[in-house]
Each structure stands twice: as structure tokens, then as C-alpha cells.
Design a protein around this nucleic acid. Structure first.
Lengths: 124, 124, 124, 124
DNA sequence: GTGGTCTAGACCACG
DNA sequence: GTGGTCTAGACCACT
């Protein structure tokens, strides 16, 4: 369900958070469905429980999951809002990159061409 | 000339590297022009000389500057190549973000609309 | 495992890098095997941790090892590629020396005899 | 007569020494012919007189030139010995590189093939 | 004066 | 415990 890449420079807990969010956004995890316990997932991923705990805590503050004392963790939102939030975030990141291109001296026309060429890749 | 942001999570030396690369890419620093000495820039940025040293070493391995013992550090490449390398990198990052959007279930049409809307922002 | 020579003019961190590369190239260190921690190796070599850190950072950029925060450093490549890269480098250096010999006025026949005599040393 | 490469990482005085030695070894500078004064060569090379002074001092200890107080510096040996000394040094360096190849696990056969391929390049 | 290496010791994020 | 960044201050080779 979740694949960790030890060659990745990002921390393990961050990889867990990202992949969990994607699973929710894709609808692979339905609203109010129960997640594996911290200990179980730690066993599944061959990882320190602290790492999973940190990932769940992050998902909690992001509003992706909710926690019921003594019962476990559950998917919170319906996935749709998570998906839209992430797409919006991607949009902002691309805008940031275009801003970087601007600072590099790329004229608006250059940036347009960049986007255009990417659209062609999309459509092929 | 260079602005450090202590609230930025990225290390100081990396901020120096990035801003120096942009200056070279913009042509603000011409080829073979001398850079501030390690110690001088350390004073300018209110930073330890080792931090600047590390930034210069990184720029050295990236082929952006060259170093002459006892004389100083000088801009190596012509700026143009640095600029193109960085623009290519930005292109790859945007492609990665589009791939993320795909994994989130955004149909090709959605991703096209995303790029289209960004182009409109560019053109306004 | 690693021997430092304080009489050697080359910096300590470079000696570490070279000997580690040789160990990997020889296959003495297998892929994904864990290296001694920065602090441990610093103790082993009676050297400052920063020196080992610098060596590991260099091996990182050369693609010989990879680094996981909080876990340690691991052998990255398969040794074979490192070995071939280094042999190719040695080949280029010998070619450079032959070029020097040419500039010194050594005729092609002289250079051939030089290589021939070295082959005899090899074969004895 | 002498070309300095500021992109070269080696110190300037070393470049001067090496090229002077080559000139003598090639016979371009005859025995007992006078060299430019320290100050003159410093002007010619657009370099600090200390740098030339250091180069001449090194050539002095290597027995390539000799110095007459109040008159100047002169080529010492007949070039032949310098040439043979340098060729012998090149031979030693190549042997050192072959030793490196051995430590990398290259079998004697591999090293033979390396030399053989270099000989073919020489003869083509 | 310049760059480069090294030591000593601190702090942070991660597992 | 791990790696990574940073500071403070020293020494060396070179110009």
C-alpha cells in the first residue's frame, strides 16, 4: 500500500504523509474508514513506531484524518477537498517556478513557450 | 547583493549558492569577473567564513566559478549555459508536478486547463 | 580499514574519499551496506567529525554513497561502475603523461619503448 | 614564451617552473644563455615579482639554472640531463598509476591490455 | 591579502 | 543514536 524509498533524501515520515494523502485524494481510502494502528503500520513498513506516529500527527493537523481515543485513526474528509487542496498547492508551486524563471531573465514569451511545450507533451 | 532569509528552512550556504547562480545566469556577473573574497562576503552577510567557503565550493563543483589560490574566486562560465541549465531544471520540476497531479486523478483535460489558466495569468 | 598519512600533502578528507572509493571499487563494501557513522569513523581515525563529514559529502556528490538522515550512510553504486570510472581516469592520466613526454621531444618510438618496458615490469 | 593558465588550480610559480624546464629540455633555451630578469619576466607575465622569484629559486635547487650575483640567471645544464630526468619522472608516475590500478583489483592481464591499447593509440 | 584545510564544539531534524 | 549545518578560531600555501 505504501512504498518507502530509502534512497530518497526526504524523511520517512514525510513520504508516509504524502502517500497517505494521495490515497485519500484518489478515493482509495473512503471517509470514516479505519487506518492501520500506529504499531501495525510500523510493522508493515519495517519502521520505527515514532515515524508512523509523526506521520499520523501531521495528517491530523492537515485535517486528513481524525483520531478517536482508544479506537484508532480514521479518514476524515471525503477525499474531494484533499484532492482540491493538493491541486491548488501544485498550482502555487508551478507559479513559484515560473516566478523563478522570470528572475532568471526569461521573458513572458519564453515562459509562455515553456508552458506551451508542456501542454503539447500532455496532449501527445 | 545577496539577501539571506533566516526564516527559510534551507541552509544559508544553499541560499548563497542559488542567488549567486541567478546573478551569473542573469549576466549580472560577467565571466572572469572577481567575486568578493570569502572573508569579505562573510562580513557582508554577517556569517561565518566557513559558510561562504562551503557555498563557493559548491559553485566550484557546479562549474559556475573557478578558484585561484592566493588570488580569489572568479566567474567561470558564460552565464548563458547556467541560465539554460536552470531553466531546464525548472521545466523538469513542473513536469514532476504535473505527474503528481495525474496521480491525484486529474484527467489530461484538467491538467491542460491548469496550464491554460497559468498562461492567462502570464499574459495579463 | 583506512590509513591516514599525515606526511602526505593531500588533505585528510581526500585520503578518506580515495580509500573509500577503492574499497567500494574492490567490492570490499557491498551495495546498500552501512558505513561507519560520521562520529565513529572520526574516533577510529582520530580526526574531527567535520573532516569525515566532508569526505562523506564528497562521496555523496560522486554517487558512491547515499545518505539517510537519522539512519546513516550506505554504499550506493555497485562497485563495478566506480571501478570502471577510476580505471578510465587512470587511463586518461597516463595519456596526459605521454603527451608531456611528446612535448619533451620524445619520439613516438621512445614512447612506445617506455610503454614496452613497463609491460615487461608488469609481466615479470 | 610562457603561457599562464589562471583557470589551472596549480600555483602560478609552478606553471612557470614546469614550462621553463620543458623549454630547457627541448633545447629551446641553450646552456649558459641568459634568462630574463625577475622583474622583466614579472612584467612580461603580468605577475607579482615574488612569483617569478619563487619559480627561479625552485629551478635553482633543481639544478636547471644558475645565478650570478649582479649579472642574472643563466641556463645551467645542457638540457639533455633535464630531459632524461623528466622522462624518468614520467615513467615513475605511470608506474604509480599502474600500482593504483592494481589496488583497484585490475589483474596483470587487465593492466597489460591497458598499456597495449595506449600503444595502439600511439601508433595510429 | 587570498583560498583551503582542520579542530572544537554547538544546535537541529530524524529514527 | 544518526546526518547536516553553523560558529569560532587556527594554520598553511600562494600572490
Amino acid at each position: 500500500m505504501i512504498q518507502l524509498d530509502y534512497h530518497d533524501s526526504r524523511p520517512l515520515y514525510e513520504q508516509v504523509v504524502e502517500q497517505m494523502e494521495i490515497l485519500v485524494a484518489q478515493g482509495a481510502l473512503e471517509a470514516d474508514s479505519q487506518l492501520p494502528s500506529v504499531r501495525q503500520m510500523a510493522v508493515d513498513l519495517s519502521v520505527n513506531p515514532n515515524t508512523v506516529q509523526k506521520a499520523y500527527a501531521e495528517l491530523l493537523t492537515r485535517g486528513v484524518i481524525y483520531s478517536v481515543r482508544g479506537r484508532g485513526n480514521f479518514v476524515c474528509s471525503d477525499g474531494l477537498s484533499v484532492r482540491q487542496r493538493k491541486l491548488e498547492e501544485i498550482r502555487r508551486q508551478i507559479q513559484g517556478l515560473l516566478e523563478q524563471a522570470r528572475r532568471l531573465g526569461a521573458a513572458p514569451g519564453d515562459r509562455n513557450r515553456l508552458l506551451q511545450s508542456l501542454m503539447e507533451v500532455e496532449n501527445q
